[in-house]
Design a protein around this nucleic acid. Sequence first.
RNA 1: CGCGGGGUAGAGCAGUUGGAAGCUCGUCGGGCCCAUAACCCGGAGGUCGCAGGUUCAAGUCCUGUCCCCGCAACCA
Length: 646
Amino acid sequence: MAEKKPYYITTAIAYASGKPHIGNTYEIVLADSIARFKRFEGYDVRFQTGTDEHGQKIELKAQEKGMTPKEHVDQVAGEIKRIWDLMNTSYDKFIRTTDADHEKQVQKIFKYLYDKGDIYKSEYKGMYCTPCESFFTESQLIDGKCPDCGRPVTPAKEEAYFFKMSKYSDRLIQYIEEHPEFIQPKSRENEMMNNFLKKGLQDLCVSRTSFRWGIPVDFDPNHVVYVWIDALTNYITGLGYDLDGNHAETFHKYWPADLHLIGKDILRFHTIYWPIMLMALDLPLPKKVFGHPWLLQGDGKMSKSKGNVIYADDLVDLFGVDAVRYFVLHEMPYENDGVITWELLVERINSDLANTLGNLVHRTLSMTNKYFGGIITNTKVTESVDEELKAYTKETIKKACEAMDRLHVADALTEIFNLFKRCNKYIDETTPWILGKDESSHPRLNTVMYNLCDSIMVGASLLNSFMPETAASIANQLGTPLKDLCDLDINQFPSDHKVVEKPEMLFARLDLDEVMKKVEELSSAAEETEEYPEVEPKAEITIDDFDKIQIQVGEVLECEKVKKAKKLLCSKIRVGKEVRQIVSGIALSYKPEEMVGKKVAVITNLKPAKICGIDSQGMILAAGEDADHLSVLTLDKDMLPGTEIC
RNA sequence: CGCGGGGUAGAGCAGUUGGAAGCUCGUCGGGCCCAUAACCCGGAGGUCGCAGGUUCAAGUCCUGUCCCCGCAACCA
C-alpha cells in the first residue's frame, strides 16, 4: 500500500493570560474536525496546538497573583489543555513557547537572521513616559503628552532590533498572486494586499527591553525576543525544526504546513510576517492560511468586560461535548461570523440532535428489536425506494468530502444530517409498522431495517470527525465498527447481525426554560466571583501636580457626531463666559441629543489639539474603559457653568 | 473621497458562469403512530436595502444612494 500522504494542520497558539472562552474553543474544535476528517480520508495527519506564554501581560498578571511567570503559565497552560481535552480534540502535539527546545531554536533563528542582516539593531525613536514605562510615537501623543496618563513625556531612544520586512515584500506579493488559495477566505486577501503590502511594509520591531519575561537574545542579554519570532515559529519548532539542519524526521515529513487555522483578527501576522520570516529562513511557505470567523454572543463579540462570556466547560456541563461541538461547527458559516445564544443552542439540539438523529436511531433500533429480536438479515427483498435511499447515501459521502475540501465544515455537517432526514423519510415511505403486522411481509421488513442500519452506519462514519462520541455510540448500538472513507460504501452492513437490545437515547430534548434556569444559576455564581476592574497604578503625585489640572463645570449647548469618525462627538460647551468646542470619543456610549443640556466635568487647561481635523479645546471626563460603556461625569447638585472643580 | 465585506420570508442563512426565488427553525393545515409530543407531506409568508441603467431575460452585471460590519486611523 502506498504511503499515506502527510497533512499538517495547526491552530494559533492560545495566549496564556487567562481561561479561553467558547470563541477561542471554537478554533480548536474546528481544527479537530478537519484533522479527524483528513485522517478519515486516509491522510497521515499531524495536528498541533499549544500556548503562547511570553510577554509583558503575562509578567504583570503573574505579579498580581503573586506568582512567578512560569508558575502562572504552567497553571494557565494546564487549564487550556484541560479544556482542549474536555472538547475531545485529537491534537498530536501541544507546544508551549516556554519549551526548552523551542526557546533554543528561537534564539538560533534570531541570531541567524541578525548575522544575515535581515535583523538589525536600531532604536525606537519616540517619546517616553517614565511612570508608564512606555514608548509612544509622535502621532500617538496627546497634546504632546502621554496618551495614557497625560503626563509630559521626554524624547528618548530605546535600543531595539528590527526585521527588514520590505526586503521580502515583493516576493510575498508575487507569492500571493501566484497562489490564490493561500489566503482564505478570499475577501481577506484584498485587505492584506491593499492595506499593507502595497502600501509598503515598515520594518518590524522584534525585540523588547521593557520586560524580562521572554526568550533572551543570547548575544545581547538586555533584549528579549518579541512575540513575532517567538510565537510564529512554533509551527516549525514543534515539528523539530533545527536551524543547523539537523531537523527531526517529523519536520521533513510535515513541513510546509497544509493549513494554519487562525482567527481572522490575526490573519495579518500569518499572511505577512510569518511568510516573510520563512522566506528569510529559506523555508517553503504554508499552503493555506484560513482566518475563520468569530462566534458572537447575541449581538456583540464576547469579551470579559461585557460580562457575556460563555465558557466551554459550562456548556459541556449543560449540554454535553458533542452537542457543543455540533453547535459551534454547524452555526459557523465559512465567511461570516456566527451567533451563539441559549435559544439557538436549545433549538439546534432539539431539532437536529434529538429529533432528527437521536430519534432516528432510537426508532430504528426499537423496531428491529420489536420485530426481529434485534437480528438484522439482508433478505434482499427490494423496492424502488431502496435505490433512492442508497443513491442518496452514496451522494452524501461525496458531498461531505467536497464540502470539507473547501473547508466548508458547516456544509459538510448539513449534508450528513440531510442523510439522517432522508432515513426518517424512508421509514415513512416503507411503513415498517404495517409490514410488521403481517408475517408474510417480514422478509421485506427485514430488508427495510437492513437498509436503514446500513445508511445510518454510513452517516455515523461520516459524523465521526465532528461528533466522535455520538458516532461511537451509534456504532456501539448497531454493533459494528465505524469505517474510514476507503471502506465506506452502501451495502456493507453485516447480515444476520444482532444490534443492541435496549437502545439508548443519544440526545434528550431540552426545555428552554429549564436551561435558562440553570444558566441563571451559573451566572449568579459567576457574579459573586466577578473581578473589579484592573487598573494599573500610576506613580504617586503631589497636590501640586494635581493642582496643575484645571477642571471646570461645562454645560453642553450643542452636540453633533463627527462625520468620518465612529467614536467622536463634537460638543459646544459653555465654560463660564466662553463657549468651547470639544471633541470626545464617546459616540458609542452617548447620542448627541443625550449630551445636550448635561453639565459635565471638563479639563480646561489642556492644550488645544486637532482630532480628525477638528479643533478641540479641552476634555470631557468620563469613566470606563470600553468605548461603548462610558459614563460621563455629571454633577450631583446644579452648578453654574465655569465653576471650578477641585 | 483610506481598504474591504454585507443588506434575500418572522428569525438565521444558501444562491456557482445572468435563464421560472431556495434551505433550516418558527407558523398554519393534513398524514402516521415504529419512535425522544418525535417522524412524513402540504400551505401561507419575500416588489432579493433604495433609485436608475445594460439585456429577450438581473438577487446575479453597471452607475448612483442609504444603512450595517470588519481592517486601518482615531479616542484629548
